[in-house]
Simulated scan of single mutants.
Amino acid sequence: MSATIHRLGSRPEPSLEPMLQLVAHDLNLVNAVILERMQSDIPLIPELAGHLIAGGGKRMRPMLTLASARLLGYSGARHHKLAAAVEFIHTATLLHDDVVDSSDLRRGKRTANIIWGNPASVLVGDFLFSRSFELMVEDGSLKVLKILSNASAVIAEGEVNQLTAVRRLDISEERYLDIIGAKTAALFAAACRIAAVVAERSEAEEAALDAYGRNLGIAFQLVDDAIDYVSDASTMGKDAGDDFREGKMTLPVILAYARGDDEARAFWKEAISGRRVADSDFAEAIERIRASRAVDDTLARARHYGQRAIDALGGFAPGAAKDAMVEAVEFAVARAY
């Protein structure tokens, strides 16, 4: 066990580059599986799927599967198909999310639903979900199948939970954390955990990797939700203020509303109900969030969960894989600065 104590913020300009370098060869093999399995005799399917899969995403979730396998010294090849399955689950949820949210931009490009329409996006998302389950079945492990199928169900529950929380000011921080723990962190956790299964490691190591992924996923989403109020479309890859206009009760809004005076609360009631969604209203929302220090505290919580992710790696041997996984956490949190 390493004697080094990792602390968030201890590295200058953290990046995903160490993880990318660590898994580069494996990721090429995963990308080959993705390219092969998104093919279909129906030309619209690979065309639409390719728009998002080749659209500049970081491949963070499959990289976590590969890095976790490297951390454990796994030398087989089962994790390549499973990492592709993880990416297909993620891509399918993005296709469906963009339809639900009526999004115009994803990763700085027009969304598939804007180009091809909602029905095609939903159905190609279904196709990718099906492909992911084919890959799981081919692996042959019921335990892997259970972990990834459960994560898929939890993600869907999280999305429905979020849908029922839209335009409701009574959403608590606890419920918000339940939502992001399901819709984002569940797949991060599963992506890491399945590496311990294929490497035939102990339940304790499975649980540690699950905790790493889950806490990283929560930190990642907290930062995403903060960025919506401090960044622009070119940085985010989506329209600034999307969450605001959709009436999503993310943590910056929950905190700003809780801390606001009567005037501020009246503003948030109108804004979240959908009656104040102009650019000037979004500008006012930013000012009110800034005055309440809601973004600062959202990012402080992200750092807390990021540190928990790093701590979960404490029992693993030091080396390039562990260092890269620590820096991936630091990168996830540093995106907002």
Rank of each mutant, 00 (worst) to 15 (best):
A84F: 13
A258S: 07
F282M: 04
S273T: 01
L299M: 12
R70N: 12
F188W: 09
I155R: 11
A85C: 10
L48G: 02
H304Q: 06
N113H: 10
R59F: 08
L222W: 04
A191E: 01
L48M: 11
L94F: 05
T250K: 14
L35N: 11
P318T: 08
S130D: 09
A85W: 09
A256M: 01
R335D: 03
L148W: 14
G319V: 14
V230Q: 11
L16C: 06
V99H: 11
Q221F: 13
S234V: 06
A233G: 05
L29T: 05
D225L: 14
P14F: 00
A24K: 14
A199D: 00
G50T: 04
S15L: 03
N28C: 01
S75C: 05
L299A: 04
S231K: 09
S2Y: 10
R201M: 04
R245N: 02
T250V: 13
L35I: 06
M1E: 10
L20S: 04
E47F: 03
L29C: 04
N28M: 03
K238T: 02
N31Y: 09
Y337N: 09
D178P: 00
R335F: 01
A195T: 01
A256K: 08
D261F: 11
D311W: 13
N118S: 05
R131W: 01
A190Y: 11
D97Y: 07
A199M: 02
E263R: 15
E284H: 13
A278H: 03
F133T: 03
A309V: 01
E200S: 14
E47Q: 15
K248V: 00
K109T: 11
W268R: 08
E157K: 15
S68P: 04
D101K: 12
A271Y: 10
V99D: 09
G55Q: 13
A92Y: 15
A320F: 05
A264K: 09
K58A: 03
L148G: 02
E47A: 11
A219M: 12
S2I: 14
A240I: 08
E284A: 10
I310W: 04
L22G: 02
T111K: 08
S130W: 06
K269Y: 02
A324P: 07
M63E: 02
R245W: 03
S273N: 14
R70W: 05
A77R: 09
A302D: 05
S202N: 13
G117Q: 10
K146I: 00
I310H: 02
V30K: 14
V166D: 13
S103H: 03
N113S: 09
L251F: 04
I180D: 07
V99A: 05
K183S: 07
S172K: 12
T235S: 07
R110V: 02
D243Q: 01
